[in-house]
């Protein structure tokens, strides 16, 4: 089997340069590539375009890159709960493209699936559709949306093997599988890296063909954004 293993985030991010476009998996702080983000902060790479559903919180996730002004443009669907993000956006320091969440997911999927563009009903008649081609199918209006072109995709999985096969856990799956498909170079960081043959092929979510580099992450914080519980009765 093809071996994709690299030592750590530092080695995984070789070739990363200023002004590149990255996809980063995760929904809120759930399933984000924590090790890759920390390494990007360390590297100080600048003028990045980041495609990620959210922008982290002020002191975690992509918020760490925002704070250091490493991001030039964010492409996201929802950016609440981050004051620094809102400040940079409203002051014009940060370029922001907000797109519907399903459109974001499908654009990521299309990127990896060889589909240059597709029609979706989301956003028709709103400012999201401004300047875009629209077309009627069966009496309903649709908007033409295009695939992305990211240099790197950084995803986080629960388990992975040395060949790059990935299994996600719970709702930490979210955007990770589509983004894994989309990177020219896809980096997968995993909580547990195992030898080939240890994962049941029936259970694999992302086949290794989509992954170029894989490493076992360290010190996962897995922060909870909104802890909501039922009191013990």
């Amino acid at each position: 089997m093809i071996n994709k293993v690299v030592k750590n985030a530092k080695e995984a991010l070789q070739g990363v340069e200023d002004s590149m476009t990255f996809m980063l998996g995760g929904f809120g702080l759930c399933g984000i590539p924590e090790n890759c983000i920390s390494e990007l902060v360390e590297l100080g790479t600048k003028d990045l375009t980041c495609i990620s559903n959210n922008a982290g919180v002020d002191d975690f996730g992509l918020g760490l890159l925002l704070k250091k002004r490493q991001i030039k443009k964010m492409i996201s669907s929802y950016v609440g709960e981050n004051d620094e993000f809102e400040r940079q956006m409203l002051s014009g320091e940060l370029d922001v493209e907000l797109i519907p969440q399903g459109t974001l997911a499908e654009r990521c999927r299309a990127t990896g699936a060889g589909i240059p563009a597709f029609y979706t009903p989301a956003g028709y008649g709103t400012e999201v559709a401004e300047g875009k081609e629209t077309r009627e199918f069966n009496g309903k209006m649709y908007v033409l949306e295009h695939a992305f072109n990211p240099e790197f995709a950084m995803v986080k999985a629960w388990k992975g093997d040395t060949s790059g096969n990935l299994i996600f856990k719970g709702t930490a799956r979210n955007f990770n599988p589509m983004m894994a498909m989309a990177g020219k170079i896809t980096i997968a960081e995993v909580e547990e890296l195992v030898e080939v043959g240890e994962l049941d092929p029936n259970q694999i979510h992302t086949p290794g063909i989509f992954v170029q580099r894989i490493f076992q992450g360290t010190n996962y914080e897995k922060r909870i954004e909104q802890k909501t519980v039922t009191p013990k009765s």
Binding site: S77, G80, P100, Q101, G102, T103, A122, G123
Partner: peptide, 14 residues
């Protein structure tokens, strides 16, 4: 206030 649409545009369009 700009929080973004999240999944709302997909939901209401369909």
């Amino acid at each position: 206030l700009v929080k973004g649409m999240g999944g709302a545009m997909d939901l209401v369009a369909s």
